[in-house]
Design a protein around this nucleic acid. Structure first.
Lengths: 144, 144
DNA sequence: ATCCGGTAAGTTGTGCACAATTGAATTGTG
DNA sequence: CACAATTCAATTGTGCACAACTTACCGGAT
């Protein structure tokens, strides 16, 4: 009979733990902006390019409408976005930044540096980590 | 005024995406065992050392009783663990593996190799990734 | 013996993730 | 044109995460 795998050997657990630790560092900072971490990710996408549909947002973030629909409703209730049915294609809902939503971007500009400072890794290590994670994510998606 | 941070530059998003991609690879495999990913992590700890308290489990996994209490109830309903109030300290609830719970470990032994295969990274790269993530998690926890 | 600070587990409430389904709008095909 | 297949967003239901709170119990100090 085979050995049971050990928790401390699992890359998978290391990813899970690191991801939760990172969002825990972001949480108090984002709280000042009134955002949760997934909401912040949505705002990052919109700051780059406004008026995306729910589907396009989902493709960039790897999230589906089951996650995004209620999240976007909350962002709308907070006054950071507006959801408008498209005229040409009534199925589409375009997500537009409000003035308040656009204004938030400058307040958020210093946030990534916080993580970099808290990470205890050099810029090169962080960059290499990001690259490795990117390749890993790609490969994992391809594998099924 | 400062630039808005870009999604594709964020280590934080890379972690978040990779972690979800990894659990997505595990999901169909774990479904065969009847487990979710966090339930599998709890079983990993118990296979190493049975009869832990909720608090000890929480320390190893970085989860609190708010997450673990209902999760452990579900594992008990599945027949994989038993929760027993400790005799000496009535506050403690010791989590014991059942025969079925112990038997599951051999079925689970091949699972980590699945991720390694799907990862598209060499063993060295995976090992280095695990080490970097470990240091990162440590540093992030220390930072607050 | 009794209080009291501390501790263990559980509960409540909010917000993701994700599977599965629904309903409306659009597109492709005969 | 008709209509089946597809697409988009929303909804429903389950199971985490995590903060805040509650309840029960312990152990020490008077």
């Amino acid at each position: 009979m085979t050995e049971a795998p050990r928790l401390d050997r699992q890359v998978c657990f290391a990813l899970y733990a690191a991801s939760r630790a990172a969002t825990a560092v972001y949480r108090p900072i984002l709280e000042d902006l009134g955002l949760t971490y997934p909401q912040y990710l949505v705002m990052l996408v919109l700051w780059e390019s406004d008026a995306k549909g729910v589907k396009e947002l989902g493709e960039e973030l790897g999230l589906d409408s089951g996650t995004l629909s209620p999240l976007l409703k909350r962002l709308e209730a907070l006054g950071f976005v507006e959801r408008r049915r498209s005229g040409e294609d009534e199925r589409r809902v375009a997500i537009h930044l409000t003035t308040a939503g656009r204004a938030l971007s400058s307040k958020a500009s210093g946030i990534p540096q916080h993580l970099a400072d808290a990470a205890g890794l050099s810029d090169q290590e962080l960059e290499q980590l990001r690259a490795t994670l990117g390749r890993l994510t790609e490969a994992l998606h391809r594998s099924h």
